[in-house]
Write a protein that binds this DNA or RNA. Structure first.
Lengths: 136, 136
DNA sequence: GAGATAACCTATAAAAATAGTAGGAATTGG
DNA sequence: CCAATTCCTACTATTTTTATAGGTTATCTC
């Protein structure tokens, strides 16, 4: 139960983007220099962020990324979902855990895991990018 | 952000223990047969559970484990803490992430991660073993 | 158009964490 | 003594995560 560095990096990068953008796209190079993050890795994260509609990109020189939505509508959950697809996994239905499953699905634990999953989803949904930026 | 199989196994095993114990110790072999869990792995988990005061053990034949506390005072957090020591990690202070730390500690993100950590701790603390058993 | 800078894409490597196995020692009840 | 059990340590295998590498395509400036 921890927050992945993917998520950490994405949050830091998006916060940096929100702050250094003056309605102009910001390049990954710039973001990563300011936040001292690994460029090539963050590139990959941004492509996922784009696929999930959190940022938009412009090509070429002077290009870069911009937020697709306002900072008060981008949630931590959005970010986690985008960058760390399986950030809340529930078990019993994870195929690769085939050996020691609770048998007789659906088992009585499903409900518990699902409830936890929902709680976490709601919680992370409630944390928006503007609140994160606000305390920097 | 997911719950480890360590935690899943420990929860299932402790629930099984609580249910099949008639004030007598239950062996790991029995627990694992009923829940179809890998015995040797669960053994290791139980030693951690013991170290953390969640169960007590009796040696020898007819030995096994018993809950050290009542089912309404053992929380999911207790279990996670015991079995999955670093279940809530907060960053910036994780030494092995030395390369791409936010610089100038403490950075503005600390507060966020710590708040999340606390929330999760409180939430998992609120889920007790008796509630888990109740819906089986 | 040339050159620079950027997103975009895929593959691979390196590192870390997780899950699981193995073999035996110590303890206790029958 | 024998069987069942906890207890302990080490090792192996697998999976996931993090990071790097090398290149392609698009766009801006000159």
């Amino acid at each position: 139960m921890y927050i992945s560095t993917k998520t950490e990096y994405a949050v830091r990068a998006l916060a940096e983007l929100a702050l250094s953008s003056n309605n102009k796209p910001v390049s990954i190079t710039e973001i990563c220099e300011k936040q001292s993050l690994p460029r090539k890795y963050v590139e990959q994260l941004f492509r996922k962020l784009k696929q999930n509609g959190l940022v938009v990109s412009t090509h070429g020189a002077l290009g870069g990324y911009s937020l697709a939505e306002s900072v008060d509508s981008i949630s931590l959950r959005n970010i986690m979902d985008a960058v760390d697809e399986s950030y809340v996994k529930s078990f019993c239905n994870r195929e690769y855990r085939t050996l020691h499953h609770c048998k007789g699905l659906p088992c009585g634990f499903h409900e518990l895991w699902d409830e936890i999953k929902e709680h976490l989803n709601d919680y992370f949904e409630s944390i928006k990018l503007d609140q994160i930026i606000a305390r920097l």
